[in-house]
Amino acid sequence: NLRWTSEAKTKLKNIPFFARSQAKARIEQLARQAEQDIVTPELVEQARLEFG
């Protein structure tokens, strides 16, 4: 299971509600691909840039 830093959680809250669950799934996918067990603000930002 993935842990989220408080900064990453804050960044996730800045994503519009309607896109948040999809973004969260993508962020967690990116973390797993990078073999990380902690979601960082950088991963959230990477996903945000993908979504535009």
Rank of each mutant, 00 (worst) to 15 (best):
R3N: 06
Q33A: 13
Q46T: 06
A23E: 03
T10M: 13
A19E: 10
A23C: 08
R32Y: 07
A23W: 13
A25V: 11
E45S: 05
F51L: 08
T40L: 04
R26W: 14
A34T: 11
V44W: 03
A31W: 01
E42D: 13
A25Y: 11
Q46N: 05
G52T: 14
A31D: 00
L30I: 08
R20K: 04
V39Q: 00
Q33V: 08
A19H: 13
L2S: 02
K24H: 05
R32S: 05
P41L: 12
G52L: 15
K11F: 08
N14K: 14
E50C: 08
Q46R: 13
R48I: 15
T10I: 14
F51M: 14
L2G: 02
T40V: 04
L2E: 02
P16T: 03
N1G: 13
I38Q: 07
V39F: 00
K11L: 14
K13V: 05
L2M: 10
R32E: 06
E42R: 05
I38M: 08
L12K: 01
I15R: 01
T5P: 02
R26C: 04
N1S: 14
E45D: 12
E7V: 07
R3I: 14
T10P: 00
E50F: 10
I27E: 00
K9G: 03
E28A: 03
T5L: 05
N14T: 14
P16L: 03
Q22C: 09
A34Y: 14
T5W: 01
S6M: 08
L2K: 02
E42M: 07
K9A: 10
Q29F: 12
E7D: 08
N14V: 06
Q46K: 12
R48Q: 11
A34S: 12
K13D: 12
K11G: 07
E50Q: 09
L2A: 03
W4A: 00
E35V: 06
G52I: 15
D37V: 12
D37M: 13
F18V: 08
F51I: 12
R48T: 10
V39K: 00
G52F: 12
P41N: 06
A25L: 12
P16K: 04
Q36C: 07
F17K: 14
E50D: 06
A19K: 13
L2Y: 04
N14H: 09
W4K: 01
A8E: 00
A25N: 10
N14F: 10
Q33R: 11
E35K: 15
K24E: 05
A19V: 15
N1P: 15
P16Y: 05
A25H: 10
L12A: 02
R32P: 00
P16G: 03
A23H: 08
N14M: 14
R20I: 05
D37Y: 14
A23V: 15
T5M: 07
E50L: 11
K11N: 06
I15W: 12
R26F: 14
K13N: 14
T5K: 03
E50T: 09
S21R: 13
S21H: 12
A47W: 15
A34P: 00
L12P: 00
L2P: 08
Q29M: 11
A8F: 01
A23P: 00
K9M: 10
Q22S: 10
Q36P: 01
Q36L: 14
Q46M: 13
V44L: 03
I27Q: 00
K13S: 11
R3G: 04
E42A: 08
A8P: 00
E35W: 08
S6N: 13
A8T: 01
I27N: 00
R20M: 06
A8S: 04
I15Y: 06
A47M: 07
K9Q: 10
Q36Y: 10
Q22M: 12
E42H: 05
E50I: 11
